[in-house]
Design a protein around this nucleic acid. Structure first.
Lengths: 343, 343
DNA sequence: GACAGCTATTGCCACGTTGAATTCAACGAT
DNA sequence: ATCGTTGAATTCAACGTGGCAATAGCTGTC
């Protein structure tokens, strides 16, 4: 197990100054081919690696960005985190991941930069914090919000148009002739913008079809896992409602609802059509496969990092906060249309 | 956006030396109550946060550990990563995540510590590297291996007993009266210890039941996603084999196989029983629910971190490499037993 | 042959922190 | 009064790097 070697060690070996070694490593100044080769050999022989802590201390940058999401084990955030980690690597950043578990205090702590300048920027998907609070928090570092709306334009934000997407999903069910369409996934106890927007899109589509929203068909959930979807579906059925379709605000909720439909002997989609949201991989292999709203996750990752890069590398041009809308499309599978392509 | 304040700034404000402020922050020496309070006030007023880069440079520790896994978006690794991140936080560590995508070069780069002492230790789940190479790589930092066996005991390793677990799964199928049991998930092109061990357990159980292994029933895969399981299942059926059960080496493969069984009109478990491995959440909500080998993931995370902590904080006691076996259990659901509890 | 105009290289310092050694004051015991 | 002891706070130096300014060497020009 080698101990560290420093610029000074390499310099001594190559017979040059430490500064010249630094120049070779960074390409930051002209170095003759001869010297460069000499230094390179010394570097290889000693197995020298730059000490990042020292570099960061000197340069004031860490090369690390934070990613704060509710839960890594949910498929949507897992997929997104994977894309973000890869996109960050392409930009020579490393990513430290924090899980907030939907805890407001954890989100607040991250936003206020409690972490001691250990990161150059933060990508956060707030869940418990209200948009208002996110906006009003004094932040010591560039922040990009995923999903949640920043009301006063105080932070960059990257998200799909939740209202339009939910409208599309509901409209798809209406076009199939369904009229008793329930929604699963409201979160009235959190002032969660995402859930509110999807509910709004759902109601908008109903309204356009001259259908009155029915409060007993708008089912709240406490969390967004499959079991919450199953529970909401059970409540819906046990409450005497007999919907012919369900729009679940996430695929996980949809898969939970689908599971419960199976246990109750309902045929999907004949008795009950189901649409989800997120296009997680499970939905492509469930039985039946799941119709869903597919956000372009690759683009979410890419744009979020681009925003962060701009703020970090060019803090001087104080661009007003961006609100980037990412495209989405409805992927029709067999949970709504029996003959849909197998995908 | 606040700019940084340093120990020196706090010291000036409190009328003490920088060293005393450091002592207050770290509790590392006796400080009178009066001074402590004065300093604390100055810290609060200035919003001082220790600069981690400087602290790390000085102390030689970063408070960061690396987690290298093939893919974050696979449910198994997503769940495991989530547990590890939380377990690390409990120990005041942060986790940087790297995805290797099963690339040998990426794994090698991480093991050789290319990252410039940016981390104090590494937890890696090698996929492409042979155990032999992992063992022989000179490592500048403590490493814990997940899953893969370290042949010469050159690195700590945390894993379930793959042979026994695969034996359990196969034995379960045998006990149900199945005799034509296929296996999906071999990876002959990688010298992947995990797959080899699960194959070994599968064959061992067959042998004990006096059944000869049939090479055409041992299906290789190139990757471990649902689509690979589906493809392997299709090949199996198209090849004329008519198995009455399948043991898939991961739940994702099992769910892919299940999906394909549905598209071919096979009834599960009546026509085909399926067992997976990993106990990912999807399997609790699939149709039918999935019988699987459930490793204790929480314990994997906890023990891996404990190993790492021991190596990092007590490098002096050169304990020989540990090989920790994590308990597993077979969770029987409806993909093998129709009447299994709904879970 | 002096001098400008280059290029290649160097020394010095500061980034913010902490380990080691040191100073200073107060106190009790001799 | 002196000395040793203890507790509290300070000074000094160093971790490894990169920005800045300075220097050394070298070529070409008048």
């Amino acid at each position: 197990m080698r101990v560290s070697s420093s610029l000074k060690d390499v310099a001594a070996r190559a017979g040059v100054s430490a500064r010249t070694v630094s120049n070779v490593v960074n390409g930051s100044a002209r170095v003759s081919a001869q010297t460069r080769q000499k230094v390179q050999e010394a570097i290889d022989e000693l197995g020298y690696r730059p000490n990042l802590a020292a570099r960061n201390l000197r340069a004031g940058r860490t090369g690390v960005i934070g990613l704060a999401i509710p839960e890594l084990h949910s498929p949507y955030f897992g997929e997104l985190a994977g894309l973000l980690v890869d996109a960050a690597r392409r930009r020579s950043w490393t990513v430290v991941i924090d899980q907030t578990h939907g805890d407001a205090e954890a989100e607040r702590r991250l936003l206020t930069g409690d972490s001691g300048r250990a990161m150059d920027g933060l990508i956060i998907s707030p869940w418990a914090l209200e948009a208002q609070e996110v906006a009003s928090t004094a932040r010591p570092l560039p922040v990009v919000l995923l999903g949640e709306r920043s009301p006063e334009g105080l932070a960059d934000r990257v998200a799909v148009d939740n209202v339009a997407a939910a409208d599309d999903a509901t409209t798809h069910l209406l076009a199939l002739g369904r009229r008793r369409i329930a929604a699963i996934g409201l979160q009235p106890h959190l002032h969660n913008g995402t859930a509110e927007q999807r509910a709004e899109g759902y109601r908008r589509a109903l309204h356009r079809a001259h259908l009155a929203p029915r409060p007993e068909w708008e089912r709240p959930v406490t969390a967004l896992h499959r079991q919450d979807g199953a529970r909401a579906m059970a409540e819906l059925l046990d409450g005497g409602a007999s919907p012919d379709a369900v729009f679940a605000f996430t695929d996980e909720l949809a898969l939970g609802a689908l599971h419960l439909a199976h246990t109750r002997g309902l045929r999907v989609p004949e008795d009950l059509a189901i649409v989800g949201f997120d296009d997680i991989e499970d939905g492509r292999f469930s039985h039946p496969t799941l119709t869903t709203v597919s956000p372009d996750k690759g683009q979410i990752a890419e744009r979020a990092l681009q925003c962060l890069a701009d703020r970090i590398y060019s803090p001087e041009n104080e661009v007003p906060a961006l609100d980037l809308t990412i495209p989405h499309r409805l992927v029709v599978r067999r949970s709504t249309v029996p003959g849909a392509p197998a995908d």
